[in-house]
Amino acid sequence: MLSIRNLHVSANNKPILKGVTLSVTSGEVHAIMGPNGSGKSTLAGALAGRPGYDVTEGEASFDGRNLLEMDPEERAREGLFMAFQYPVEIPGVNNAYFLKAALNAARKHRGEEELDAMEFMALVRDKAKLLQMDATMLNRAVNEGFSGGEKKRNEIFQMAVLEPRLAILDETDSGLDIDALKIVASGVNSMRSPDRAIVIVTHYQRLLNYIVPDVVHVLVDGRIVRSGGKELALELEDKGYGTADVEPAVAR
């Protein structure tokens, strides 16, 4: 589903990703761990099409299509979803209005009928329940005045509504208390399916107790230095990333 080969990405002429190779098959959950500044968000951002990143080398394809050629909105409509590490507050743009526009853009792209206001609200209420979100937040401006935890939950809520085929969750667990973490994890788990892949960026094993990954990768200084099963996350938590680069990277 997602295939990244030797990806090099710079920002402001500073090389950040230095040859990332990674492939994710549908049905799988991958975790990407690594120290601060190692390039995890850069990888997520480059895949989502965030401006300001220059791909200097390498490839990334999504279902066989060159991801790097597409506008961000096209990637999203094709079914790629990135949950932001730092969701953006957008005063004056109503949450429900925004989400309906997003959903209908994707549906239109897929040749499906757009949802009307009634159908949309029914869908959204369902999903809000799943994430135990207060329905009133739908009438607020996007993320405006949301607490850190609410913002993260709102990201997963959007994912639940948009039903992407590939979800990249950038530190969705940070800022969540244990109850919120469980809710978010169950939301994510409910979306696991054979034709969907999920990539979770996290620093902590804690989230991975609830969303058990198939593969864990360790990103250090712009390279994946190690990949392994779910035990790798436990080991990292135990020993830190320091040991990671002495062992061979499975994925390369």
């Binding site: 909105e73 999203a76 957008i90 743009v93 925004f98 989400l99 997003a102 853009a105």
Partner: peptide, 23 residues
């Protein structure tokens, strides 16, 4: 950042700008 956020959800650039201007 807001424009990218909207685009990352599938909303076209023009529409994203229009949304923010309306906002």
């Amino acid at each position: 950042d807001a424009i990218f956020y909207l685009r990352a959800r599938g909303i076209a650039l023009d529409e994203a700008r229009a949304m923010l201007i309306h906002a």
